[in-house]
């Protein structure tokens, strides 16, 4: 399902300096797997997520998702791919604070100029699923952390993507909310999604639903 082949990523800081974030790594993730990338911040696990989501392109090597070479997709096609195949959950939720809950959840659909009925059906489905429907007209900035998290998950799900990517999803949550999140993950895994979580939260390392823990350090896999 997801393959990173001999992938290296270097960031150019300026002409003479560059930082190697990933150094010749290879990862294979099968369909329906839940994989946890473990590592301290700066270890390169976020870069792996970015590569899978085609948010950035590898310096050497390639990234193949669903038999598609996403590392070679032009910008617009990378966006389409993200729109259809990837649900991204960020550490800081990355919602637009001055938009309402439903406007935030609808954002991925906006460029496609969706049919109103269809959009509403999708919206209602995910708001129901992640238990946020009662707040649909509330401004996101006045929500609690847990609610914002659920809005972010709902937004990631509006197109029912096959792959869920989460970057430090529990970093801003207390333990109870973290456990809630894990329950949500369980539901997603049961519905057959492929899930990649980058985290250093020990809560994830011994979970029954986690198929594999990959440890990343200094841009290499241990």
């Amino acid at each position: 399902m997801i393959t990173l082949k001999n992938t290296t990523k270097t960031y150019e800081i300026n002409k003479n300096n560059s930082v190697t974030a990933l150094d010749n790594i290879t990862i294979n993730i099968k369909e329906g797997e839940l994989v946890v990338l473990k590592g301290v911040s700066g270890s390169g696990k976020s870069t792996i997520l970015s590569l899978i989501a085609a948010l950035t392109k590898p310096t050497i090597g390639e990234v193949i998702v669903n038999e598609k070479r996403v590392s070679k997709l032009p910008d617009n096609f990378a966006s389409d791919y993200r729109q259809q195949d990837i649900g991204f959950i960020f550490q800081k939720y990355n919602l637009i604070p001055t938009l309402s809950v439903q406007d935030n959840i609808l954002l991925p659909l906006v460029p496609t100029n969706p049919d109103e009925v269809e959009a509403k059906a999708k919206l209602d489905r995910v708001m129901e699923q992640f238990n946020i429907a009662h707040k649909k007209d509330t401004m996101v900035r006045s929500l609690s952390g847990g609610e914002q998290q659920r809005v972010a998950i709902a937004r990631a799900h509006i197109n029912d993507p096959k792959i869920i990517i989460a970057d430090e999803p529990t970093a801003n949550l207390d333990e109870k909310l973290s456990l809630d999140f894990i329950e949500i993950l369980r539901g997603l895994k049961d519905s057959g999604k492929t899930i990649v979580v980058a985290t250093h939260d020990p809560l994830f390392f011994n979970l029954d639903i986690v198929d594999r823990v990959i440890e990343v350090q200094g841009g290499k896999i241990l």
Binding site: A53, L55, D75, N76, S79, D80, R82, Q83, Q84, I86, F88, F90, N94, L95, I96, L107, P108, V110, P111, R155, A156, N159
Partner: peptide, 19 residues
């Protein structure tokens, strides 16, 4: 900047943002 980043991350094309 962050807002544009978010939009692109959730699947907006460059052309969509330009539009």
């Amino acid at each position: 900047k962050r807002e544009i980043g978010i939009l692109k991350a959730i699947g907006w094309r460059v052309d969509d943002i330009l539009k």
